[in-house]
């Protein structure tokens, strides 16, 4: 009889534990609990920190934001961004980040329709057009970018890729500001075999390409 009761209690405890979804280390802080939920849990598990405030921040909200953001990041699906509170972390920023990655993996411009915020959708389309301009080596495509302030950086990026592919044929005067300097240093480094010229290039793409060109030799 007692044995049966113990077995029954054990089953109830097992079911209870499984229903909790996640288990926490003994003595885990609220932050550590949310960290576990972020890695292994679901949105529902965030109820386990309901009403808990840490440094003035509601940790159920933090928990939900983290679960939503990590889901979006792992699946590259912007729909999960709508699970964000849109205050501590904005839906637009999340959707922009996810769609950027999506475009970078080769997705079509149609994926931009998955954004729920107009700003993210425009940004996504602009990133796609940037990618098209780079791939085709066509600066004119940059003028189809909707954000006017992004057109000049787009043209420069296209020119950077042209420079990387054909350093000797590049015209550095086509760049503006520090990119003109970077272009000259890039060419100097490669033409003169001087690795040091790479080190003061400020553009990450050119700097990395410059130094790697010496590492390969």
């Amino acid at each position: 009889m007692i044995g049966s009761v113990l077995i029954l209690l054990g089953i109830i405890f097992f079911i209870y534990q499984n229903n909790k979804g996640v288990t926490f280390p003994r003595g885990a802080s609220t932050e550590e609990k949310v960290s576990v939920i972020r890695e292994k849990g679901t949105m529902e598990d965030c109820a386990l920190v309901r009403g808990v405030m840490v440094n003035g921040t509601d940790y159920e909200t933090v928990c939900r934001n983290n679960v939503a953001y990590q889901l979006a990041l792992k699946t590259l699906d912007p729909k999960y961004c709508k699970g964000l509170d849109n205050k501590l972390v904005s839906v637009e920023q999340c959707e922009s980040e996810i769609l950027l990655k999506k475009i970078n993996t080769g997705a079509d411009i149609a994926v931009c329709g998955g954004a729920s915020v107009q700003g993210a959708e425009i940004y996504c389309r602009d990133v796609y057009r940037l990618r098209e301009a780079i791939q085709k080596g066509d600066e004119a495509l940059c003028d189809t970018i909707e954000d006017i302030g992004s057109r000049a950086p787009c043209r420069e990026r296209v020119a950077i890729e042209g420079l990387v592919k054909n350093p000797s044929g590049a015209d550095c005067s086509r760049f503006s500001g520090s990119l003109t300097r970077d272009c000259r240093n890039f060419k100097n480094a490669l033409n003169g075999g001087d690795r040091n010229a790479c080190t003061i290039i400020t553009n990450d793409r050119l700097r990395s390409e410059c130094i790697n060109s010496f590492s390969k030799n």
Partner: peptide
């Protein structure tokens, strides 16, 4: 930041939970 992407600033707690983000 990269080309047409703005700079990102994110705040994390000591367990690396994302607390807030902006650009």
């Amino acid at each position: 930041e990269n080309n047409i992407t703005p700079g990102t600033i994110k705040k994390y707690d000591s367990s690396l939970n994302l607390i807030a983000a902006t650009t």
